[in-house]
Design a binder for these strands. Structure first.
Length: 597
DNA sequence: TCTATACCTG
DNA sequence: CAGGTATAGA
């Protein structure tokens, strides 16, 4: 019966959505991969070198020079030439099994280039000095390189360079990282200039740092350290910037997420917040008000669109202020948020701020954007709460409204009323300029339902008379006619149902069938047309209901229901029993006074 | 034929 | 509650 129940079953899919980036972030495979490739090349060199005696030195002195020259030459030609040649040889020889083991899982085509010195690695001994020499040379070139490539900043980086200054740069860093990456790489074990690779090696370097110092001059060591740090910074910067880009692009909520992650997103542009854009489209100036309140909550609008289901719990909303329907709308709005949904969400925001709780009374109007031929679209998401007029709130939660009677707002369908401040706007606007809106809103529906207590077969003219704020056209008229048709349908179904029940219960005298206010039938009807029980059902309706019930009872008792059109006579009778509708219903506003009587 | 409404369905 | 269909009356 209660359409709202369906709203409760909305799962929040935002969770998974949000979770995705998290997994991505945590996925970083680097740690393992890093440990895989690098260890060998490095551990291998020193160990073998130490084992070998010096006599090797003379023999290889020439070769060493030649190699150094080659390397230096290569360095001048390209960013990462010298090493690659050596690397492969290094890796392969030593413990192929281990290598395979570790590489198997990842196993990328090109074997990780190891440090320099293929055949040399086997011989060992002289390689140590040779390498030292090599490194010196490379470092020198590196310095030059950096000085040239890294512009002003490079100067500082040089020999005692500071690895500071990470913050500001993006372009600079890029250049710097490029050259630095190459530098470090070549210095140790060489590889392509690919930053990611460098990153891998970097970790491995740290592992073997304890060994390095023994073979490197202090100056070189310092430089290495600097380079490492710079590289680290540069890489992390690059990663961050890429991440940032990726996270920024899709949409606002992702941005938000990214920010919480890295904390690097500049505040200035970090808040594209699509929902705002949507809200801006809202023709009603009133929409601006709720938005202004956002910052105060500390809940960016960006959250609303996507993460509402998740975030809402965090909002300090007092229990009484949490309307059921809330659980519905949020789940609907991943990225593209329909206008009316956004409004709902904006309203939801207000819950946290609202001075009193008057929004409840206003909701019926608020929720429906003006031109909604099928007001249901706007209606449904709101469910019961939206249809719950002030009177109900008073009855059920009297403590909510200390000054309700004074504050009762005219339910002007065309006006979106938010908090008190908006009421002023509402009041200031002459009704004439706002009414005659095209489309029916929940308030209209509610009113129609109440009117049903007086008239079951309203003419279009009657409807026009009682809905002065509606710009009637063929569509609107038929829609409203359809409403009453649906009302009747439900009404007659109930009548037939209870008439049959009475018969089965052994009732013989139709006069015994009277619809009382405490009867089951009445409750059913009241629930349907007067949900919330904020309107006192007129006695005349009870009489009509009783009569209808009796007619159904007689017809069914007489077995007339075998006739396909057996209900028609009943309809005819009932159609003549429409009562006059109180004048108050003609008020375009939704007179709260109605509910008092 | 057109309109209004009942009936059925989603 | 709305959309579609069937049907009765004008």
């Amino acid at each position: 019966m209660d359409p709202n129940l369906t709203l409760l079953s909305q799962p929040s899919q935002a969770c998974s959505y949000l979770a995705e980036p998290c997994t991505k972030g945590g996925r970083s495979p680097s740690p393992r991969e890093q440990g895989r490739d690098s260890p060998f090349p490095w551990s291998q060199v020193p160990s073998s070198s130490l084992a070998d005696p010096d006599w090797f030195w003379d023999e290889h002195i020439q070769a060493k020079r030649a190699r150094v020259e080659t390397i230096v030459r290569g360095m001048c030609l390209s960013p990462n030439p010298p090493v690659p040649g050596n690397a492969p040889a290094r890796d392969s020889p030593c413990c192929p099994e281990r290598k395979r083991k570790q590489n198997l899982p990842v196993q990328q085509g090109p074997p990780k280039p190891g440090p320099a010195g293929d055949r040399g690695s086997r011989k060992g001994g002289p390689r140590v000095r040779e390498q030292l020499h090599l490194l010196k040379q490379q470092l020198k070139h590196l310095q030059e390189h950096i000085l040239q490539a890294a512009e002003p900043k490079a100067a500082a980086q040089g020999p005692g360079g500071s690895e500071t200054g990470k913050g500001p740069l993006s372009v600079k860093q890029r250049n710097g990282s490029g050259s630095r990456a190459w530098a470090v790489d070549s210095a140790h074990h060489g590889s392509s200039g690919d930053p990611s690779r460098v990153e891998k090696h970097r970790v491995s370097e740290v592992k073997h740092q304890s060994e390095e110092p023994r073979f490197l001059p202090s100056g070189a060591r310092a430089l290495l350290e600097i380079l490492k740090k710079e590289l680290t910074g540069a890489i992390s910067q690059a990663v961050d910037s890429v991440l940032q880009k990726v996270l920024l692009d899709p949409s606002g909520h992702l941005t938000h997420l990214g920010r919480s992650f890295s904390g690097l997103v500049p505040d200035g542009r970090s808040e594209p917040s699509p929902p705002e854009g949507g809200a801006c489209k809202d023709p009603l100036p009133l929409a601006a008000l709720p938005r202004r309140a956002e910052p105060q909550t500390g809940a960016p609008l960006g959250n609303l669109s996507l993460a509402k289901p998740l975030d809402s719990p965090r909002y300090p909303v007092s229990p009484r202020m949490i309307p059921k329907p809330y659980q519905g709308p949020p789940a609907n709005c991943p990225l593209t948020v329909p206008a009316h949904i956004q409004e709902d969400q904006i309203l939801s925001q207000l819950l946290g701020h609202g001075p009193s709780g008057h929004w409840r009374g206003n909701l019926p109007q608020d929720s429906s954007p003006q031109s909604h031929p099928s007001s249901e679209a706007a209606l449904r998401p709101w469910g019961a709460a939206k249809l719950r007029p002030l009177a109900l709130s008073q009855q059920q939660c009297p403590w909510l409204f200390t000054s309700t009677c004074l504050e009762r707002l005219p339910l002007v369908p065309s006006v979106k009323m938010e908090q008190g401040g908006l009421q002023a706007v509402t009041d200031a606007l002459p009704f004439s300029s706002l009414h005659k809106q095209e489309g029916l809103n929940p308030g209209h529906l509610k009113k129609a339902k109440l009117m049903f207590f007086f008239t079951r077969y309203p003419s279009s003219n009657l409807l026009k008379a009682y809905f002065p704020d509606v710009q009637f056209n063929r569509c609107i008229t038929s829609q409203m006619i359809k409403w009453f048709s649906n009302f009747r349908e439900f009404y007659y179904i109930q009548m037939e149902k209870f008439a049959r029940q009475a018969i089965s219960d052994g009732v013989t005298n139709p006069k015994m069938l009277v619809v009382l206010r405490n009867s089951q039938l009445f409750r059913a009807l009241n629930m349907h047309y007067n949900k919330g029980n904020d309107f006192e059902v007129p006695d005349c309706f009870l009489e009509i209901a009783s009569l209808t019930l009796q007619e159904f009872f007689r017809a069914v008792s007489a077995g007339k229901d075998s006739d396909p059109s057996w209900k028609k006579p009943i309809y005819k009778i009932i159609s003549k029993l429409d009562s006059d509708i109180p004048e108050i219903f003609k008020s375009s506003s939704y007179p709260q006074e109605l509910f008092r009587n």
